[in-house]
Amino acid sequence: MSLLEIKNISKIYGELKALDDVSLKVEKGEWVAIMGPSGSGKSTMMNIIGCMDKPSLGQVLLDGVDISKESNKNLTNIRRDKIGLIFQQFHLVNYLTAVENVMVSQYYHSMPDEKEAMEALARVGLAERAKHLPSQLSGGEQQRVCIARALINYPEIVLADEPTGNLDEANENIVIDIFRQLHREGTTLIVVTHDPEVAEVAQRTLVLEHGRLAKEIVNENFKD
């Protein structure tokens, strides 16, 4: 059984089909990139996989559970337990320090544990900056805090929407290295990106166009 199985989903806003009859499977431990022009439905797809939205039609099986029929309350619980989110705009709470931002995720999931949160920051190379507020961190550092926060509860799937969209080349490489490491550790990764360089390092790239799955490219030279 695949970790994630999407069967013929569509998301319809009035006249507009943001997603149009899309099907795909993601296996446990896979690293998948989703590409496509702006407005092609990438974020809509992420919202549905991330249990923040439901498809208008079709089924989404996550770990064998059909999340397209769940109540909002159950979706919140599933999201909390199984999904780690990484955002283009980082979305750190601006009045909490780096380590506190990581702890927020623990707080909603189970128990805040400062020591564990510090370790997560150390993993992304930010042990020194743990007591800093987001405004005192560079974009790359903020993104790494965001990654530490996404990983802290050991999610089944990490969803990243344009994770390098606001970063420079150097920081992009740092993030890609972290993804590589996560992949080696067995984390399932779905990364939405504009950037071919970020897509190339994944095992597989899905291309969306006008809400439809236009292409699927398997990366022959994928290396761990």
Partner: peptide, 16 residues
């Protein structure tokens, strides 16, 4: 709003 959305995305219930 963004912060509230984020908290919810991280799994905050309405009551929290």
């Amino acid at each position: 709003r963004k912060e509230i959305g984020l908290r919810k995305a991280l799994g905050a219930s309405d009551s929290s």
